Simulated scan of single mutants.
Amino acid sequence: MTDIDPGFDCRSCGACCAYSADWPRFSTESDEALDAIPPELVSADLSGMRCENERCAALDGTLGEAVSCRIYALRPEVCHTCLPGDPECTMARAARGWAPVAA
């Protein structure tokens, strides 16, 4: 991983939350954790978060400006593991034509 700009704030990006309808999938969450996610935000096949086009339905705001997750404390494991500057972050930003997060 590269050195990350200490001033970078994921809430000014959101690329990872609007990269692919296949990305916000459930994998290691407990039944209790899944039950805590509001049903209207879960995909019809129950495999992950519901997306509108490629964008997670729990994401509010404008990409590249200001975004927030409506269920941040309850978000799936895949959302916890995506970190600024990691390969997934870089891939999601590149798909939008944005530069990687680096110092």
Score class of each variant (00 low, 15 high):
40 E>Q: 08
16 C>N: 02
61 G>N: 11
63 L>S: 04
51 C>G: 00
50 R>T: 14
56 C>L: 04
32 E>F: 01
92 A>S: 10
51 C>K: 00
61 G>I: 13
39 P>D: 15
68 S>Y: 12
25 R>L: 04
76 P>K: 00
16 C>W: 01
52 E>A: 10
97 G>L: 09
38 P>M: 01
38 P>Y: 07
33 A>F: 00
94 A>F: 04
65 E>G: 06
91 M>V: 13
69 C>L: 13
2 T>Y: 06
93 R>P: 04
83 L>Y: 04
47 S>M: 06
24 P>S: 10
18 A>S: 14
57 A>V: 13
48 G>H: 02
79 C>K: 07
39 P>Q: 08
39 P>I: 11
103 A>V: 14
87 P>F: 05
62 T>A: 07
78 V>R: 01
57 A>E: 03
37 I>F: 00
48 G>R: 06
68 S>N: 10
59 L>Y: 11
62 T>M: 08
2 T>V: 14
92 A>R: 07
103 A>N: 12
80 H>F: 06
47 S>C: 09
37 I>V: 03
11 R>L: 15
4 I>H: 05
99 A>C: 02
70 R>A: 11
75 R>E: 08
84 P>G: 06
3 D>N: 15
31 D>K: 04
39 P>K: 08
35 D>V: 09
83 L>F: 09
100 P>S: 05
80 H>M: 11
